[in-house]
Design a protein around this nucleic acid. Structure first.
Lengths: 229, 229
DNA sequence: CGGCTTCATTGACCCTGATCAACAAAGCCG
DNA sequence: CGGCTTTGTTGATCAGGGTCAATGAAGCCG
């Protein structure tokens, strides 16, 4: 059922390390699943019985306090890997923030398969190391940057992560965020009001344009870099 | 020269996955090195030519803004692994905050060895996943918690991470932090003054005792948990 | 022991960003 | 098209925590 050879993330996901025959084996373990926007796939604290590759769409990893404050601790794009291999419950919940399509595996089955396929495991290790680096750079932002610096850093990171797909044309000529204002706030550790105010202020001084709710056009990349600290 | 079989972290470091003969091979690649308190081993942004196991002592991972604000993004204890396998520069600097002893490898040599030893790589993967989980929980603290919550969370985490070694006696009966006040502030994304004030306040209400600069005694674990949010 | 340096505490004040509240603009659907 | 809901913007006010500054307590070493 799952045809890995024609998979849209075939060469970018961790599966890229596998030979066709291995791929067939893994493919039979996997199952495609659509997830609709807003739906939560894994709950914080619950046992996480599945892992998955993201084929399409965007998901968020969210940690929350007992009284409901939320912090987005990770953003997951197509070809990225979701879940917690090798035991343990998920320390954060995973929710789709757009229509998404996943390639899901039972965790135990996946763990077993991974143990027999060092190349796959190495790909996973490299990804996890990169993700850890990203998380740590984000800790600097959360702990030490001011609101303007946070928003500027966010726009730069998004320009970087969202540019490759939407045509190679003019990278600087705008991109569409997969987030609403509240989600940007949850990524930056701010309130929705401060986020909105900072964006408005940046538009007022001509740094950026906001042609629609989720569209961003960067006019002055250098100044934005400066502003990001 | 390096006798892995009698190594103090033999059963806790990633080397625990290796057979004696493999261990001998790795051991000949490694080199013991003392690092004195305050010394920086790797610099943020520089190419990181080494990886290492920590045998003894405590080190910090620090990310900094251009203008010198610092955020501690990781704390490294004995048996933990340091460095960035598989290419790339280090995105943070690594400094000893106490006298430390390391078991150092050239990164390229280590990468090569790891590629041939899946079990080692799996151990490394598990460690990295755990570290990522920890980093993400810390992001919630940095982005969403108040100063009192931050300090309470910090004390609980430290009570947890520092208890096993220093005698199993009374876990609640105090432990010695390897940090000064400024470092606690850099971990929590606060200033040294706020950190100090929060600790003083907690002592005032009897939650904790502060018998000496770096010693902490927790009197009311439940209340502290409550306070941590 | 005594002076010096480093580290921690405490106080006064201020500013950034949170909170509360009203309003405006988009999207949605009958 | 028009009402309703959701999402975003803007304003007024407030407070948590930062900043600046002074004092106090520990460690260090001659």
């Amino acid at each position: 059922m799952t045809d890995c050879l024609s998979c849209i993330v075939r060469n970018r996901a961790i599966c890229a390390s596998l030979r066709p025959d291995e791929l067939g084996l893994l493919g039979r373990m996997g199952r495609r699943q659509r997830v609709s926007s807003g739906h939560t796939l894994l709950w914080e604290g619950d046992d996480a019985p599945v892992v998955a590759n993201v084929l399409d769409g965007v998901l968020k990893l969210v940690a929350a306090t007992a009284d409901g404050r939320e912090q987005i601790v990770g953003i997951v794009f197509p070809s990225d890997f979701i879940g917690r291999p090798f035991g343990k419950e998920s320390p954060y919940s995973v929710s789709a923030i757009s229509e998404a399509e996943l390639c899901i595996f039972h965790r135990d089955q996946f763990d077993e398969f991974a143990a027999d396929h060092p190349d796959l495991q190495q790909k996973l290790l490299c990804r996890t190391l990169a993700e850890l680096d990203r998380a740590r750079r984000w800790m600097l932002l959360l702990g030490r940057k001011s609101a303007p610096e946070k928003v500027a850093s966010f726009l730069l990171e998004m320009a970087d992560r969202l540019s490759p797909p939407p045509s190679a044309a003019d990278t600087a000529r705008g991109f569409e965020l997969p987030f609403g204002r509240q989600q940007i706030a949850d990524i930056l550790g701010l309130t929705i009001e401060t986020t909105s105010r900072q964006l408005t202020k940046m538009r007022a001084v001509g740094l950026i344009d906001l042609p629609s709710r989720r569209k961003i056009v960067i006019n002055d990349l250098a100044a934005l870099n400066e502003m990001a600290g």
